[in-house]
Amino acid sequence: MSTAVYERIRKNPKFDELVAKRSRFAWMLTIVVLGIYFIFIMVVAFNPTLLTTPIWEGGTASIAWPIGASMILLFWLMTGLYIRRANGEFDDINSEIIKGAIE
C-alpha cells in the first residue's frame, strides 16, 4: 500500500531536489566540523607547543582555552544553522511532496 506512495514520492522531481539540497548542506557542515576538529587533533598530536602561546603578550593564559571554547561554540551554532534550514525551508518542501503523493 505505502510502496505505491513511496514510488510516487520517488518520481516527483522535487524529491530529488530536496534530497540533493539537504544532503549537500548537511555534508558541507559535516566536512567543516570534522575538518576543524581533525586539524585541532593533529596540532595536539604533532605540534602541541603551538597551543601554549599566551593570549596576551607576557601573560600566562594560553590561546588553547579560547580556541577550545570557540570550537564548542562554533559547532553548536552550526547545528543551529542546520535546523534553521532543515526545519523551515526543507520541511516545507517535504510536506508538499508528501501531500502531493497521498492525493
Partner: peptide, 11 residues
C-alpha cells in the same frame, strides 16, 4: 522504499 521514508518521514 527505505530511502524515501528516511528522507521524508512518510510512514
Amino acid at each position: 522504499d527505505q530511502y524515501v521514508r528516511a528522507q521524508t518521514g512518510f510512514g
